[in-house]
Design a binder for these strands. Structure first.
Length: 323
DNA sequence: AATCGACACAACCGCGTCCAG
DNA sequence: TCTGGACGCGGTTGTGTCGAT
């Protein structure tokens, strides 16, 4: 489309960055923020195109990057997310703090893909290559498929919210606050609920941009295959202090039918799994810490309660029973 | 010690999207 | 509404490293 590739300009350096170039870029951004990437190289005294500078910063020099070996937990997360999201590396990276999309993509291509292949799993579909599914695998695949729909919708919503908060992006790096959009983190819910060894309590991810649960009057407009996110009569209500009042477990079906498309429901759903032990509005009690120490409530009751709701959610979203 | 091939990862390229003018 | 600049994303390539011969 007639775009002039910035790196074709004569005199601009390409290839591996030197330590001196790194230092120049780092120093400039620490002092001034990156501002316009296109304008940065000349200001910072670099013979590079802006794109090369941006890549070097985001993939290597940024101080909030964790480098080195991926942990087992990270590997599992990548595999699960890849099953959900495919090659959407930036979306996957959003779930792995301090890891870049490029690093994850490389790790997938050089390690995980091969490992899955060796195990007889098609890395593209995450299905066994040879024989047909067993029953439980079929369930998992169905779950993943549905969760993928939810995750896609959530990503759309997050992307929109990020766009709306673009103002923040021009703030120079040292003073930039960490912005997190409202998170309907299906993956964490899915992991926490289906995990068989332990009821995982997440330490972050379930909050809105202002740190509070969203008002039930808000609307999310997801597109295409996800139905219009019109606010419905909620099964989950807010009390006088805007705390969520959790419903009777017997009402799971009703909840699923009436509230699954509601943001505050999903956030409430998520928040109970990440409860810090002080949520007096939970009917069962809060969840468990990562070390499995109790914060109150009963593990099995909790799991049954939310599994029941999830069963109904999945059944409802698919239009046909799965379990 | 030299060469070669496999591997890992950094960096580049081209396209799509967003948005200001 | 249209246009072009800026940026982000995912695929691909380039380059350095390491082990085998």
């Amino acid at each position: 489309m007639g775009r002039s590739p910035c790196c074709d300009k004569v005199g601009l350096k390409k290839g591996t960055w030197t330590a001196e170039e790194d230092q120049k870029l780092l120093t400039y951004i620490e002092r001034h923020g990156h501002g316009s990437w296109r304008a940065l190289p000349s200001k910072a005294g670099l013979q590079r195109c802006g794109k090369s500078c941006r890549l070097r910063w985001t993939n290597y020099l940024r101080p909030d990057i964790k480098r080195g070996k991926f942990s087992l937990q990270e590997e599992q997360t990548i595999i699960q997310l890849h099953a959900l999201l495919g090659n959407r590396w930036s979306a996957i990276a959003a779930h792995l703090p301090k890891r870049t999309d490029n690093e994850i993509k490389n790790y997938w291509n050089t390690h995980l893909k091969k490992r899955l292949t060796k195990m007889g799993i098609d890395p593209a579909t995450h299905k066994p290559k040879t024989n047909a599914f067993g029953c439980s695998q079929q369930k998992d695949a169905a779950n993943l498929s549905h969760m993928a729909q939810w995750e896609s919708a959530r990503l759309e919503a997050e992307a929109r919210l990020v766009r709306e908060s673009k103002l923040l992006s021009s703030i120079p790096y040292p003073t930039k606050p960490s912005f997190q959009p409202p998170c309907l983190d299906i993956l964490k819910v899915w992991q926490a609920t289906w995990t068989t060894t332990k009821n995982v309590t997440s330490t972050n991810g379930f909050f809105t941009s202002n740190g509070n649960l969203q008002s039930p009057n808000s609307t999310l407009n997801f597109s295409d295959n996800i139905m219009d996110m019109e606010v419905m009569d909620n099964a989950i209500q807010l009390d006088d202090n805007d705390n969520i009042e959790y419903p009777n477990p017997d009402d799971a079906g009703y909840i699923a039918e009436n509230s699954l498309r509601h943001q505050s429901f999903m956030e409430g759903f998520a928040s109970i799994l990440s409860d810090d032990g002080n949520n007096s509005t939970s009917p069962i009690g809060p969840c468990y810490n990562l070390d499995n120490s109790s914060c109150g409530g009963d593990l099995e009751d909790n799991r049954k309660y939310w599994n029941n709701i999830l069963d109904n959610l999945v059944t409802f979203t698919s239009g046909s029973p799965i379990f």
